[in-house]
Design a protein around this nucleic acid. Sequence first.
DNA 1: GATGAATGAGCGTTCATTCAT
DNA 2: TATGAATGAACGCTCATTCAT
Lengths: 229, 229, 229, 229
Amino acid sequence: MLKTREKDAAEKKEPGLSKTAQRRQREREQRYQTILSAAETLFAREGFHKTSMERIADAAEVSVGAVYFYFKNKEDLLVQLLDEIGFRLRALLGDEFKKAGASLTGFERAGRIFFQEFCGRYPEKVAILFRESVGQSPVVEERRKEIFDKLTADVLSALQRMSDNLGSNYKSRFSAEVIAVSIMGIYERVAYEYLFWQDRSRDFSAIGRDAVAFIVGGINNLFKETACT
Amino acid sequence: MLKTREKDAAEKKEPGLSKTAQRRQREREQRYQTILSAAETLFAREGFHKTSMERIADAAEVSVGAVYFYFKNKEDLLVQLLDEIGFRLRALLGDEFKKAGASLTGFERAGRIFFQEFCGRYPEKVAILFRESVGQSPVVEERRKEIFDKLTADVLSALQRMSDNLGSNYKSRFSAEVIAVSIMGIYERVAYEYLFWQDRSRDFSAIGRDAVAFIVGGINNLFKETACT
Amino acid sequence: MLKTREKDAAEKKEPGLSKTAQRRQREREQRYQTILSAAETLFAREGFHKTSMERIADAAEVSVGAVYFYFKNKEDLLVQLLDEIGFRLRALLGDEFKKAGASLTGFERAGRIFFQEFCGRYPEKVAILFRESVGQSPVVEERRKEIFDKLTADVLSALQRMSDNLGSNYKSRFSAEVIAVSIMGIYERVAYEYLFWQDRSRDFSAIGRDAVAFIVGGINNLFKETACT
Amino acid sequence: MLKTREKDAAEKKEPGLSKTAQRRQREREQRYQTILSAAETLFAREGFHKTSMERIADAAEVSVGAVYFYFKNKEDLLVQLLDEIGFRLRALLGDEFKKAGASLTGFERAGRIFFQEFCGRYPEKVAILFRESVGQSPVVEERRKEIFDKLTADVLSALQRMSDNLGSNYKSRFSAEVIAVSIMGIYERVAYEYLFWQDRSRDFSAIGRDAVAFIVGGINNLFKETACT
DNA sequence: GATGAATGAGCGTTCATTCAT
DNA sequence: TATGAATGAACGCTCATTCAT
């Protein structure tokens, strides 16, 4: 039996396999993705609890048993989804924060990418990350935390690099971590508000710009304050 | 039958009732509160879904039927909790934002109240508001939205009053609403992070100060920028 | 406590009571009737099982406890209703059958009374008797049976009187009881069909006439056949 | 998921299935029938409301979940039962009424079949049809009505064919439909009386004969009257 | 590998009935 | 007498999970 933990191995195409074996493996990966994708759509649309495993199986056009072949249980489905979302999000944002260097443009670009690219393109992933995975179980919560932790760490290091580059201007009385967390909070709330509560998906470029401006202003202020006052 | 909708009336002590009737009413309110309080604790500790009505009844030392006498159903319990939390939160913060006037001190005081008074004293309420009520049902979500809407509106009006008092300095290209939403996001994430993920309840005064500083800095920047650059 | 069985005694006005006592008694009877009447309406409209004791109390504008003061339990409410219906029905029909004597006019008049007077005026009682009390419990079933038994007996005796008066013409190979039961069946089904399934309450005089004609024809045939063939 | 609506398809043995699939299907149908049969017995013996789903599952030696796999809910169980009863009843009686032609023998044979074959052999089905399904819910009532409607229509067409064959002798002042309904009423009441109230299951051949004689007499009278008087 | 029928614990909810006041 | 809050057993139903084939 192939269960979640071995998936990474299973997904890599190991060379030296027969044609049939290769095809099988491809099919397996495809099914895995089909199921995961069905779950994503349903969790986002109907809610995690209101989605039954049978519904997921139906939507993915496989049997219930097949779902359990690829995923340990319902929670695992959510965890895998979360992992995939976290991976993609970090791939998008992490780079920008890394490239941020000394300037604030990294924050601006990251913001634009998050609000336009990510929220605009994957509202379902946003729903999973910010809504459906909230308060579900210790395991899921742990995964959610990991994603936020990494993202926060990315922001934090960008912040610290800026501080270093700018010399001793950083007002040390503020904990940089709290600021990184705050920035994540802005991302989260703004996305939630304008994606799920008001449906302003089409204004996301403007909304994103405004939110980012506030963030950048806040950061800016951290370093400039002394100079300014 | 006394069901949720008549609660407000039931809670007021109507004069001109017999002694017995008054006592009865007092007992009724007390039980209502006992049950609600038991639900709050359990929802916060075990999670909304993992808490059964029977557990709540047991914790409140009443029968299951009694819970249903006071509350329409499990969802109603959460809605009432949310209403109470929203009411209390607004009573605490709304005033500060109103008093904010032209200065930023209102934001500073509101922040301190939220992080120290509210999060410090009522971590369970924070759990209900930011964790347990997320993505539960349309009705609950509607209630959550109302709370956020009102709070956001409070912040917004404070922001606008500041803008008015300071003359035309407000950089109109930023939507004030997005900024208000962002501030709520900071509150939410910071509280969540340091209350549920890292247990730093004792450092909340420092953490709160840092978060507020970031907010204030961001706001400050909105008005000062032109002057500064 | 005054429970169902003592009701008959309670309903009679015992002389030698004080004014207050008399008034009380009147009020008691009135309440009894109010509750019974509320139950009748609700049972007929919503169904016996779907009507809760609370609904009945509300409709009668009394407390649940009051309902239990006047009636032993929910079943008793149905039994009392049935008794009242049986009494009224027999008062209407019994006489006609008794007066029937040698002719068929008794059957015709009884039929007209049942379909026009009873079904037309008291569709709710018909619903209780033919729908809501069916298959509810041994006790209720027993009561239903009693009503049918008495009515059947009335028909039967009318049938026998006719037979006697006409001399030996009665074809003894038919059980008179079966015929009496059959007549009751016609009453029941026709009322049910045109009252609850097709709503032809306004055509009841014509429908009744047709049904009665069939009954009379059948009876007629019993005695005439030999003469005719 | 196989739910009630697909049952008809599921019951047919579709050719071209693998041996295993065929066996599975057979087992499925068998279980469906076992559960339905258990429900029939229990509904008839204990009453619809007093029979819990758990009892049915126990009696059928399956789990509660299995019952819900085959039937949508408790009501559905009753509806399926009703459909099956209606189908069987019509198969038995419909033919006779159709074959009735110009003579009354069709009515006589139909009556014998109903009272002896049906009531004698399937008292439980009679209990479901005439007792347990009465006044349960709009859906069930609709189904009951359909059965009666079809049966009534059968009787009606037999009546009309007789009328046609006999020429203009039919006394047009009687609505044929009312007579058909009356005949159904006789069937119903007589079966109910002698099956559930008096236990005279062994005399059903005599009782049936008497009831049928009354019916036939009534019909006879409709056409003969003028000739006779 | 894949299927889908079967399981059964568990939950939310109802409501007839009681009884202290 | 009258009230209505409180009880708690009982029920219908769901659904994650398993496993024989």
